[in-house]
Design a protein around this nucleic acid. Structure first.
Length: 349
DNA sequence: TTCCCGCCCCAGTTACATCA
DNA sequence: TTGATGTAACTGGGGCGGGA
């Protein structure tokens, strides 16, 4: 299964297959916080249509839906729902009763069926066109009955309708025409209502995911800020320690600006004067021979001999330091950091 | 290949119902 | 009564597929 998370601003619809079951995105916040979110946005719509009905079938279903309009509202109870089969008859037994108690006849598919119910994807006959015209006329008449002033009614879906739509959304975040018509028939809603519900549901899911992502980024930012402050404190401490030790040790070129970790070895390239920090064995300890002068390896001598950066001028050249012969000790020379400069293992890390 | 049409989705918005 | 909130419904723009 594939899922491509989009936070919007996607220039083009992102195709992605969707898990048949709710996808749980463990958004780790770092603080033992596991957020659970059902995702289903941008599931492949057209890919799912490979097994859907043809346009002719859709038309037939539309016609069938129009036939359904003639039946009383109670003849398509929620009990007859079979998709997505999450709602048992017992659970939905109160659907109609709640409809009655809430008095939301407005939620049931109107007798005209609405224009959406009869909107075939490919009109194929004059009879169908005629039917659609009748539907449109009836809807227009109903609009006038509703006040005609353009005041749209706010329909509230019943608990059972919403839960069934939710279950369907978990199965498929997008609808094929067949699924839409099936849901509309079984929930006694207009296909347009089902379509709008899924659109709004996808928008809500996306909004929630955006909020979760924003919170995650905020926590990451706070964590990085704390880490940055801690590292800056360490740098300040190391610089202070370095200043206190420069009186007893010759200055190490390039070390004043570098925090040293435990067991760290600075390798200084004598030619380009670039320093490089490499990890050294933890057991490696400060060796007095580094600054002891006689007997010290040439590389260490050269490193210790370079002036401090505060002097404003890097070592003039190896030739100046060693005469005409440039000492050969490889591309980099190693200087072991004295123990006093070594950074203590951080308690936080 | 191009154009047109129908369909669908999305982002944004509006308007209504509900609740504190 | 009123403001906040949730959400159904609408609008406009754009992408995609199919047919002429």
């Amino acid at each position: 299964m594939e899922l491509e998370l989009s936070l919007g601003d996607s220039p083009a619809p992102v195709k992605a297959t969707i898990a048949p079951t709710p996808v749980l995105i463990p958004t780790c916040m770092g603080d033992e916080e596991d957020l659970e979110l059902v995702l289903g946005v941008r599931a492949t719509r057209r890919d799912e249509q490979d097994d859907q009905t043809t346009c002719t079938q859709s038309s037939e279903e539309a016609m069938e839906g129009e036939e359904d309009e003639t039946r009383p509202h109670g003849e398509a109870p929620v009990e007859s729902l079979s998709f997505p089969l999450f709602v048992s008859s017992a659970e939905t037994g109160s659907a109609n009763s709640e409809m009655c108690t809430r008095g939301f006849d407005v939620n049931t598919r109107p007798a005209d069926g609405g224009a959406e119910a009869g909107r075939p994807s490919s009109p194929s006959s004059m009879q169908e066109a005629s039917t659609r015209q009748q539907v449109a006329d009836q809807e227009a008449a109903d609009d006038e009955d509703n006040g005609g002033g353009g005041a749209r009614k706010k329909l509230r879906l019943s608990k059972e309708q919403s839960s069934f739509l939710e279950d369907s959304f978990k199965e498929h975040s997008t609808l094929t025409p067949k699924q839409k018509s099936d849901l509309a028939n079984r929930l006694n809603l207009r296909p347009r209502q089902v379509e709008v519900w899924f659109q709004n549901r996808r928008a809500r899911t996306k909004l929630k995911q955006t909020e979760v992502d924003c919170e995650h980024l905020k926590r990451c930012c706070e964590r990085l800020t704390r880490e940055n402050r801690r590292l800056q404190r360490e740098v300040a401490e190391l610089r202070g320690a370095l200043r206190t030790t420069t009186s007893s040790y010759p200055p190490l070129y390039g070390l004043h600006h570098l925090p040293a970790a435990a067991g760290t070895v600075f390798r200084v390239c004598p030619s380009c004067e670039h320093s490089k920090v490499v990890a050294a064995a933890a057991s490696e300890s400060f060796s007095p021979r580094v600054f002891a002068g006689g007997g010290a390896p040439a590389a260490i001598t050269a490193t210790a001999a370079v002036p401090s950066p505060g002097a404003g001028s890097p070592p003039s050249s190896s030739a100046a330091l060693f005469g005409a012969r440039r000492p050969h000790f490889g591309p980099f020379a190693a200087a072991v950091i004295p123990p006093v400069l070594r950074r203590q293992p951080s308690a936080t890390s």
